[in-house]
Amino acid sequence: MSLESVLAHFKQWNREGDVMEFETSSATVEEAAHTIGVIPARIAKTLSFRGEGDKSILVVAAGDAKIDNKKFRREFGFKARMLTPEEVLEETGHVIGGVCPFGLNKEMDVYLDVSMKRFNTLFPACGTRNSAIELTCDELFKYSTAKEWIDVCKGWEEFEFIGTVTVNNDGL
């Protein structure tokens, strides 16, 4: 049922044919990266939190990013508390390992973390433990109807630049 709601969601942009289904699991960041053939950081993981009152929120972040509790509290004004697997299924309509900001059961506020902006494209899940779609950051923002880009993650900045080091004749 969950994949069908995501396909219906993407149909409005004629993108349902771009949803990929795999023979192997893509339920974790590592499994998805291996299945798709990309580095784990390019997997766009969707995290679900209790919001204020009875409303839940989704934060989509790069696969190598972790929630920074201080940044989260500063951004939202409350402590980061993740939903239980049962609550995630009830709120989103998607099982853990397939959670995405598309084709949701209930209207939810979606936020995108800046940890993803370093990539041209990312791969969010599509409602099942063996599906994904390749999207640009702009497409992810549009298709998820995100409210805004936020900065609530840590652990990814130290891996932002991978390049070469040039040493001169003095060893400097």
Score class of each variant (00 low, 15 high):
F141E: 00
I150L: 00
V29Y: 05
F102T: 12
V95W: 04
T84L: 05
F161I: 11
A146I: 06
N168G: 05
E107N: 14
V95A: 15
N120E: 15
F22K: 11
L122S: 10
C100D: 05
V167N: 01
S5I: 05
V99E: 00
A44F: 04
V88G: 03
F159I: 04
C137Y: 04
G51Y: 00
V38E: 11
W149A: 02
L140A: 10
V88F: 01
A41C: 04
D54N: 14
V152L: 02
I36N: 10
V19T: 06
M108R: 03
S26G: 15
F78Y: 15
N105Q: 11
T46Q: 02
P101V: 08
G98V: 05
W13Y: 12
N120K: 15
S5W: 07
V6E: 12
V60F: 06
K142T: 12
I39G: 10
N69F: 01
W13S: 12
I96S: 14
F76N: 00
R50C: 04
S131M: 05
K71S: 06
T128M: 07
R74L: 13
G163A: 14
V6S: 11
A65K: 00
F49L: 06
K66Y: 07
K117E: 15
S144I: 03
T166V: 11
K142E: 12
G17Y: 06
Y111T: 05
W13A: 12
V95Q: 14
E107L: 03
N168T: 02
K79G: 01
L47Q: 07
D18S: 14
A8W: 06
K147F: 00
K106H: 14
H94V: 08
H94P: 05
S56M: 02
D170L: 13
E107T: 12
R74G: 01
L122H: 02
K117T: 15
P85Y: 10
D170I: 00
T121E: 12
H9F: 04
I150F: 01
L3W: 06
F102H: 09
I43G: 06
P85W: 04
E16K: 08
L7T: 09
A44W: 01
G51M: 01
E139W: 07
K66V: 09
D170T: 11
K11C: 08
P101D: 06
S48I: 09
S2W: 05
S131K: 05
I133F: 07
V6W: 10
S56V: 00
P101T: 06
T128W: 02
K106A: 03
L83R: 02
N120P: 11
T145V: 03
R81N: 14
V95I: 13
C137P: 14
L7F: 08
I43A: 04
G37N: 10
E75D: 03
F78S: 00
